[in-house]
Design a protein around this nucleic acid. Structure first.
Lengths: 339, 339
DNA sequence: TTTTGGCACTCGCCCTGTCCGAGTGCCAGC
DNA sequence: GCTGGCACTCGGACAGGGCGAGTGCCAAAA
């Protein structure tokens, strides 16, 4: 168990390193922080901290930098979440209030997060499976070609074209549309498959039954599986900012960010409630082993419908970043609830 | 006027420099190319080329590298467009054929282009103003809240929610829907505003007229102005590849790429027909002054409905890049025409 | 007039050696 | 357990020297 002062030393090291981006030595520490002890004492504490694996020195005659384990301790026990300043809050409001549709909300959120944290922002679209259906529309594009449009309570709109095995009359179409809507409106999207599974049987014409089956199968499958998760990222230019000591590190990060699968997994690993901070090697993807990911769920009600977060260097301002992420998530939730 | 041989020397310099990424000297040139003359002669030619501004030397005792002007001459007069190999063509086919909707087409195109050229790819969504209307749908979300869904012949789907000044009955809605469709289906989107401007007058109820007016005004304005142009980019990780000599150059490029406005302007500056190559400082945006942009229009018919292109270092393989860009644009056009 | 081989020269790069100082670990004393 | 002192280490900055690629110029050859 580390003494109170040693924790204080660790906190000071983290803060200074985050600020200066340079290894911090015992003398500099005592000058910048009121620890009430001499550099020599700090050195002893540092030796202990290093032995325990919380800090390390890049070279023998250099200062110390925090390790992943050190950051972990810092985040868990030494740092709070820094609330945003009033101007910052106002900026969030102003910026998000102008959004006209879901794409716009997500887009603005990404830009906002990237700007506030000066890091890379990732925002997931509200998940379909956790949303409820607001409306289902069926359009006939051609005699044997339909388009299904699906609108969720979070404002998300998905559409898909389906080629039917046989022409499908306007009457049958209106019929199907009505029956579909009466069954699924207001229900959670995840429940839709079983809610509609008996629909084909209720049609008399064999041809219609076939069509309805095909349509439902294709659509549900496509919608649920392929377009389940979408996301938007932004602020990649910020990578260049902190990449100046790691010009070679930027490459794998950019590659990871291009793979939506990786990002979705990243967000998926986050806790369902509360904020999640994954530091350095705690991230499964090795391209991200020198980055930290701060993520949190957001939603229109009490329940999270999706997640958002930022990706930055392990050497980041955790309290500030966490504050920004949390604040943005809350406001986005409000916006969604209002729309 | 430069002699044939001097042009040949320039071509050799460009090719070698693109290949090796290092300044090329007279001796190396004669060794790698069958110019039929001695290094001394090449030196004389180089001196002339340098005087004319086509090449430059980074340091006194270094080889030469092409200037923007040199690349320009190379592209205009010395290089053809390299056709793709058969496997590459097949790859394009395979990759694009699996697309399920427009988002998917655009997304796949971006990835494909980025992979083929190993550079940053930019693909614009088919422009609304140049597309024709396939279908217009009006949905009632709430008594005084409508959603308009607009589907173009290129598969693009736009939707917007509108709050009406007064409740709008189902009958009136169906009426409006029918009239809207009869007027605009098959017409170019740009013509829609004037095609519908007299619609409100044909409604009897004053309330309905007000609603119709509001709806049309809001929708058309929003659709035309705000969502006119969308685009997708990909392959930013490729920046890290060629950024190793310019680690400081990657920053402004990333920033430029984040600004959709900049990119749209970039593509907008391209010629309406044929391929456009903008080299280095020819690009208006200064962050892109050491990159080249190769762009071309694509479309389902003879006419271009949007543009796509790649952004890479001025030191790029122009023939190959141009070949890839052109080929991809053609296939995307085909895909769009089929859907 | 153009091309060529020769030659002296320039200059950036790399390697080496040196110096400097921040930072450390240890220890004796308080 | 804290402090001041001290010897030590080692990375970074700087300077000098050798190397070699590449140039420009020139006189001779084609």
């Amino acid at each position: 168990m580390l003494s109170e002062r040693r924790l204080e030393v660790l906190r000071a090291i983290v803060q200074d390193y985050v600020g200066t981006e340079e290894p911090v030595g015992s003398k500099a520490l005592t000058e910048r922080h009121k620890l009430g002890v001499s550099p020599a004492t700090v050195r002893n504490d540092m030796a202990v901290l290093e032995e325990e694996g919380y800090i390390a020195q890049p070279h023998t005659s250099a200062g110390r930098i925090p390790t992943d384990k050190g950051y972990r301790l810092f985040v868990d026990r030494l740092a709070g979440v820094k609330p945003l300043s009033t101007p910052e809050r106002r900026a969030i409001h102003n910026f998000l209030d102008g959004a006209v549709d879901l794409d716009d909300v997500v887009g603005r959120t990404v830009r906002l997060l990237a700007q506030l944290t000066r890091q890379v922002a990732v925002v997931q679209y509200p998940s379909l499976t956790r949303s409820t259906v607001r409306h289902v529309e069926l359009l006939s594009l051609a005699p044997a070609r339909l388009m299904l449009v699906l609108i969720t309570d979070t404002g998300r709109v998905e559409q898909r074209v389906v080629d039917c095995p046989a022409p499908f009359g306007e009457t049958s179409l209106a019929d199907l549309r009505a029956r579909l809507n009466s069954r699924v409106v207001g229900r959670r999207f995840a429940d839709v498959p079983q809610l509609v599974q008996d629909l084909p049987e209720s049609f008399e014409e064999a041809e219609d039954r076939a069509t309805v089956t095909t349509v439902l199968a294709t659509l549900l499958e496509t919608l649920v599986e392929e377009h389940e998760e979408r996301l938007m990222i932004g602020g990649t230019a910020n990578l260049a900012r902190f990449g100046h000591d790691f010009p070679l590190m930027i490459r794998p990060v950019l590659e990871a960010l291009e793979e939506q699968v990786v990002l979705l997994k990243l967000l998926g690993e986050a806790k369902e409630s509360g904020m999640t901070v994954r530091i350095g090697h705690e991230n499964a993807h090795e391209g991200l082993s020198s980055t930290s990911v701060v993520s949190v769920g957001y939603g229109s009600g009490g329940e999270a419908v999706a997640k958002l977060g930022v990706v930055g260097p392990t050497r980041m301002d955790y309290p500030g970043t966490m504050g920004a992420v949390r604040a943005v998530a809350r406001y986005v939730g409000q916006i969604l609830a209002e729309s």
